[in-house]
Amino acid sequence: MEKIVKSEQEWQELLSNEEFQVCRQKGTERAFTGEYNDEKTAGTYKCRCCGLALFTSETKYDSGSGWPSFYQPSKEDVVAVNRDISHGMVREEVVCARCDAHLGHVFPDGPAPTGQRYCINSLSLKLDPK
């Protein structure tokens, strides 16, 4: 997959202040405030920054965490996972494989069949309804 690389200024011009803070500066939206937390519309969730298809509504579920949660990405190679040791804890950060946008974190407490919970910020996603 070919990487998309832009300067911080280019990203700032393309994104709202809130989107930039989450996607490019590794921020987190407050729990239960995101646009897609309770979303039930069928479709594909794409990267807000580059449009890559990341997750589908078929793998979305209500984890009770306050963020949109998915048990697997749409394809294996669309997200990358990095070790995150910020905020005094060790977590697995999820980023877009094409543009490195911060999406959220993945935890090993999700449902079958994967056992994974991809806990994703709504600000890093754009729903493309079916």
Rank of each mutant, 00 (worst) to 15 (best):
L15W: 08
S16C: 07
E18K: 12
E19H: 04
F20S: 03
Q21N: 08
Q25V: 04
E29H: 10
A31W: 01
A31F: 02
F32G: 10
E35K: 14
Y36G: 08
D38F: 11
E39I: 09
E39M: 09
T44A: 13
C50D: 13
L52R: 09
A53K: 13
A53C: 05
F55H: 09
T56F: 06
S57F: 08
S57K: 11
E58F: 07
Y61E: 01
D62M: 02
G64A: 10
G66W: 05
V78N: 01
V79K: 11
V81Q: 12
V81G: 04
N82R: 15
N82I: 14
R83Q: 14
R83T: 15
I85D: 02
S86P: 06
H87A: 14
M89K: 15
V90L: 12
V90H: 00
E93M: 08
C96I: 10
A97M: 10
D100P: 01
D100I: 06
A101Q: 04
A101Y: 04
H102R: 10
H102S: 02
G104F: 06
G104H: 05
H105M: 01
H105N: 07
P108D: 05
A112T: 14
A112M: 12
R117F: 10
C119H: 05
C119Q: 03
L123T: 03
K130V: 08
